[in-house]
């Protein structure tokens, strides 16, 4: 009986992991498969689909998504750091309430945020914001809470004695912020920004309301195309953008020690 249960456990574990990896493997396989309908033909492979990715049709949306994600990541880093600084470092009165306000967008589903923002922008004389600036603003609403929370956690874990020591030794407030606080919370800031970048780059539920013809982000371009055809170019686009995301995480990691934050957070 015990052995049967153990066997069942391992079998189910393997099946579940297969379920998790299956769609990813299928997409990678389809992206190098030579046939134009998506089928699996082991042995034969090609990079034709990847060369099709390198055309304006896919590059323009990619550049737009990249631009938006960079701005969103920087803005949520700055805004999140300001909010987290006031709440977690200065601990101004009412900071709990302020933090819940900063986190409140998390309680609202993305579709609902999207509806609210698109209605607001199209009816309140904010017409100018429709399009790319509207997309950026909407994405920041989505990512700011994550960034603020991650940065607040790292300020919370920061050893205040280091700050006091610097103060006793005569460091000014700005010196302490720049030389003590910032280097120590940098992993938190960078992980918040990486998170914001990935969320913005992959976002669909908000973007879908705000993109304008001729100015669509990469995920929206892909899903629009998917409604008509499933050809393997899509597989190549998807794999290429996944590789791009992984490379970005790697870069951020090199810069800011993203995993140091994760490991530090788990202790």
């Amino acid at each position: 009986m015990n052995r049967f249960l153990a066997g069942l456990f391992w079998l189910s574990l393997c099946l579940i992991l297969a379920f998790i990896t299956l769609p990813l493997l299928v997409v990678v396989a389809a992206s190098v498969s030579p046939s134009s309908t998506v089928t699996f033909a082991p042995g034969d492979w090609t990079l034709t689909w990847y060369s099709a990715v390198w055309t304006a049709k896919w590059l323009d949306p990619f550049v737009l998504s990249l631009k938006i994600a960079v701005i969103v990541s920087l803005a949520s880093g700055v805004l999140g750091a300001l909010g987290a600084y006031a709440v977690a470092y200065e601990k101004c009165p009412g900071s709990d309430a302020i933090m819940s306000f900063l986190l409140s967008p998390l309680a609202v589903p993305q579709i609902v945020k999207g509806v609210a923002i698109v209605l607001f922008l199209s009816s309140a004389g904010f017409y100018v914001f429709l399009g790319t600036s509207g997309l950026i603003a909407a994405h920041i609403v989505l990512t700011l809470p994550f960034a603020a929370r991650m940065i607040a956690t790292s300020i919370h874990n920061f050893d205040k004695n280091l700050d006091r020591a610097a103060q006793i030794l005569g460091a000014s407030k700005w010196q302490r912020m720049w030389h003590i606080l910032f280097p120590l919370i940098k992993p938190g800031v960078f992980s918040g920004m990486t998170f914001a970048f990935i969320i913005s780059f992959n976002n669909i539920p908000l973007s879908v309301f705000l993109v304008r013809p001729g100015q669509t982000t990469l995920p929206i371009t892909v899903i629009n195309y998917m409604e008509y055809s499933l050809d393997p170019v899509l597989a190549a686009v998807n794999v290429a953008s996944l590789i791009f995301i992984l490379a970005t995480i790697f870069l951020f990691e090199k810069f800011g020690g993203f995993s140091a934050q994760i490991h530090g957070g788990s202790k």
Binding site: V78, L79, G80, L82, G83, Y85, A86, V87, E90, C92, P93, I98, F101, L102, S104, P105, V108, V112, K113, V115, A116, I117, L119, F120, L121, S123, A124, A137, A138, I140, V141, L144, A148
Partner: peptide, 27 residues
């Protein structure tokens, strides 16, 4: 001095007011 602690909150709170709280209210 106490109010000075709130200054950093001005940009994030204003942003969320304009692009989150007001739109939800309008909806």
């Amino acid at each position: 001095f106490a109010l000075r602690g709130y200054i950093p909150l001005v940009p994030p709170i204003t942003f969320l007011m304009i692009f989150f709280a007001v739109p939800i209210g309008m909806m």
